[in-house]
């Protein structure tokens, strides 16, 4: 299971702040919701189901964009890679 680093600050206006590095990010609405679910420790299956109910997107397409998004988070070092389920 993926986990967002604990100290990452997420504002509801679409800004993300990483206090360790001092970097900030903008994030769109869909990204914001996913990040929210990740901090709530939801599983990929739960997130997929929630998102495909709210949004006009099928499961396969959603997962494709979801994992792409995760790899962006990883690239920006916002994921807690040591987190063990």
């Amino acid at each position: 299971m993926m986990q967002i680093k604990k100290n990452i600050a997420l504002s509801n206006t679409g800004f993300v702040f990483n206090p360790t590095t001092g970097d900030s990010y903008t994030i769109n609405q869909v990204g914001q919701e996913i990040l929210g679910y990740l901090s709530d420790n939801k599983t990929v299956e739960e997130i997929t189901s929630l998102m495909t109910t709210t949004y006009d997107i099928d499961q396969a397409s959603f997962e494709k964009y979801f994992f792409d998004f995760i790899s962006m988070l990883r690239q920006f070092e916002l994921l807690d890679e040591n987190y063990e389920n």
Binding site: T26, Y55, L73
Partner: peptide, 14 residues
């Protein structure tokens, strides 16, 4: 009615 989906996106502010 379902909401329009935009692919999730995050960008570093320079």
């Amino acid at each position: 009615e379902k909401k329009l989906f935009e692919r999730p996106f995050i960008k570093k502010l320079q």
